[in-house]
């Protein structure tokens, strides 16, 4: 048997280190040239601006060629928006709705996350409840409004109930699919390293499930916002705050068509802004850290 000897090992050691450094450099390739920031901004901002301009042009064209009574022009809507901003109604409605949306969303996360983890781990419960949860996801949450009014009368409780029914199923599903996507090999490595039970969940399963979970949160927010608007459109009372849905419904009752369009635009912009400023950067950061998307995203 060849006894371990120091001589030849040390001799080859230096050459081996150089060879290995050379191989790594070759395989990794040269650093990619960075896109200049101005070009990057133009690339991401120009296409949406083009789409916006196109839509405005079509709108203006339809307005000119058809009855201007039913369809206001873009400038009329702009004026209406300026009016409602200057008297503070839009801001107040946005703040009220965002507060409700955030509270309802956070409550949904607090309920749905443990529920999702439980269903992902216990096969019997999952077989029992997942079909119901998937079914609930396809049920438009506005369908809960009549029942909620009967149970909670015209109160904010009605609105929160509708948000929960809308958001919880999608967050539960996101949590389950996040856990499902954890490669079995990671679990095995965890076992080999000596992690079991809660230790395994904390150090391996949960971090590995994070991208799917964030996808679920993103979808959960979209469902929260939609459900909130559906509820606010129908549930209106002077006893609680005036949200975007109520603003929209009020404009309808006053036959204020520019006001209705302002309401729709505000709902769209707020929902999009939360996604673009909060969830998308979070999702991109997590995926980028793991090398799952390129630097340009």
């Amino acid at each position: 048997m060849s006894a371990p000897t120091a001589g030849p090992v040390i001799e080859t050691s230096r050459a081996g280190a150089d060879l290995s450094a050379g191989l790594d450099a070759l395989e990794l390739g040269p650093a990619e040239p960075r896109t200049p920031p101005l070009k990057r901004v133009l690339e991401s901002v120009l296409p949406p601006l083009f789409a916006l301009g196109f839509l405005l042009a079509v709108w203006q064209l339809v307005e000119v060629t058809r009855d201007p009574e039913t369809l206001p022009s873009p400038t009329e809507v702009w004026d209406s928006l300026r009016d409602s901003v200057s008297d503070g109604r839009v801001q107040e409605a946005v703040v009220t709705s965002l507060e409700r949306g955030a509270l309802g969303f956070l409550a949904s996360v607090a309920i749905a996350t443990p529920l999702g983890l439980l269903l992902a781990q216990v096969r019997f419960l999952r077989r029992a409840f997942q079909p119901i949860i998937s079914g609930l996801m396809s049920l438009p949450s506005v369908a809960w409004v009549p029942a909620a009014i009967l149970w909670f009368s015209l109160s904010e409780g009605t609105i929160y109930f509708v948000i929960l029914m809308g958001a919880i199923p999608s967050i539960v599903n996101g949590t389950i699919s996040g856990i499902d996507q954890v490669p079995p090999l990671f679990t095995r490595v965890g076992h080999v390293l000596g992690a079991r039970g809660l230790t395994l969940a904390r150090h391996v399963l949960l971090p590995a499930a994070l991208p799917g979970y964030i996808g679920g949160l993103k979808q959960g927010w979209a469902f929260s916002w939609r459900s909130l608007m559906a509820a606010e459109l129908i549930v209106n009372s002077s006893t609680f705050g005036f949200g975007l849905g109520q603003l929209l419904d009020q404009s309808r009752q006053l036959f204020d068509i520019p006001g209705v369009l302002v309401g729709i635009l505000a709902i769209l912009v707020v929902g999009l802004a939360v996604d673009l400023l909060l969830f998308s950067p979070l999702e991109r950061a997590v995926l980028k850290r793991r090398g799952l998307v390129g630097a340009k995203g």
Binding site: L185, V189, L193, G194, L210, G291
Partner: peptide
């Protein structure tokens, strides 16, 4: 050790090693 490195992608290489040390 497996055919795949099976390193945890949310950790750096040093953190991957540190996790093994921590679990020990």
């Amino acid at each position: 050790m497996f055919q795949e490195p099976a390193l945890f992608p949310w950790l750096t290489s040093a953190q991957n090693i540190e996790l093994a040390l921590r679990l020990r």
